[in-house]
Amino acid sequence: MSETLTQTTAAHNSHPAYKASEKVAAHLQQLSVDLIDLHLQGKQAHWNVVGKNFRDLHLQLDEMIDAARGFSDDVAERMRAVYVVPDGRAATVAAQTSLAAFPATEVDTATTVDLAVAALYAVAGTARKIHDDVDAEDPSTADLLHAILLRLEQLAWMIDAENRVAGRSTPVAIQG
């Protein structure tokens, strides 16, 4: 003898303490897109970088890629937690990214450094641009932006050091 259960579909109502506004949702979507593109550009650079200090830069690009991939997941999961649906599809990323395109060819290490640093600072710029709006509405999400900024700017400094000449390029020492 089998019994069939009748399943009823009742509306599910959640009562979140916080739900992102359209403005914060758009800001987080932009950051998500930029982080996804940073990951993709990092892979493109990783596969096609050649020249002096190849191995060191190749490994640094791995760090950049890991950070971008991890942060893109953190941002997307935070979006879901505040009732925003992230869109990380390739067409969306291509249409909405703030990053300049990375070349499709082999790229010399010195140029790769400059391009990677520019991409890192572009994503950091997005995080800084949206920070105050996000912080005003949700300080918890702003904490995530702080973590992203700390790591991306650290990576930019470390990668940029590959092309610097001591005492002849920025930054200059602070004189007290």
Results as ranks from 00 to 15, higher is better:
S2L: 15
T4W: 11
T4L: 15
T4A: 15
L5K: 15
L5H: 07
T6K: 14
Q7D: 13
T8V: 12
A11C: 11
A11V: 10
H12Y: 13
N13G: 12
N13H: 14
A17E: 10
A17I: 13
Y18W: 12
K19L: 13
K23W: 01
K23V: 13
V24H: 06
A25Y: 03
A26E: 12
A26W: 01
Q30P: 13
V33E: 03
V33Y: 00
D34F: 00
I36R: 08
I36C: 06
D37M: 05
L38H: 04
L38E: 05
G42M: 06
G42Q: 06
G42P: 03
K43F: 02
K43I: 14
Q44F: 06
A45R: 04
A45P: 01
W47D: 08
N48Q: 08
N48W: 01
N48D: 02
V50M: 04
V50N: 03
K52P: 00
K52T: 06
D56V: 11
L57H: 02
H58L: 11
H58V: 09
L59K: 11
L61Q: 05
E63D: 15
A67V: 01
A67W: 00
A67I: 06
A67C: 13
A68N: 08
D74A: 14
D74N: 12
V75N: 04
V75C: 07
E77Y: 12
R78C: 12
R78W: 07
R80Q: 15
R80W: 09
A81Y: 01
Y83M: 15
P86T: 02
G88Q: 06
G88A: 13
R89F: 04
A90S: 03
A90T: 03
A90D: 04
A90K: 04
A91Q: 03
V93G: 07
A94H: 00
A95T: 06
A95R: 02
Q96G: 09
Q96W: 00
L99G: 01
L99R: 05
A100W: 00
F102E: 08
P103V: 10
T105H: 04
E106D: 09
V107K: 09
D108K: 11
T109S: 14
A110F: 04
V113D: 14
L115W: 05
A116F: 02
A116W: 00
A116V: 11
A118S: 13
A122K: 10
A127W: 00
R128W: 03
K129L: 09
I130V: 15
I130N: 02
H131R: 12
D132C: 04
D132G: 02
A136F: 01
D138G: 10
T141N: 07
T141Y: 10
A142T: 04
A142H: 06
A142P: 05
D143T: 09
L144A: 04
L145H: 01
L149Y: 02
L149S: 05
L150R: 11
R151F: 04
L152K: 02
Q154E: 11
L155G: 11
L155R: 10
A156V: 02
W157T: 14
D160G: 15
D160E: 13
A161V: 07
A161M: 07
N163M: 10
R164G: 14
R164S: 14
V165T: 14
V165W: 09
A166V: 06
R168D: 02
R168T: 02
P171I: 11
I174E: 14
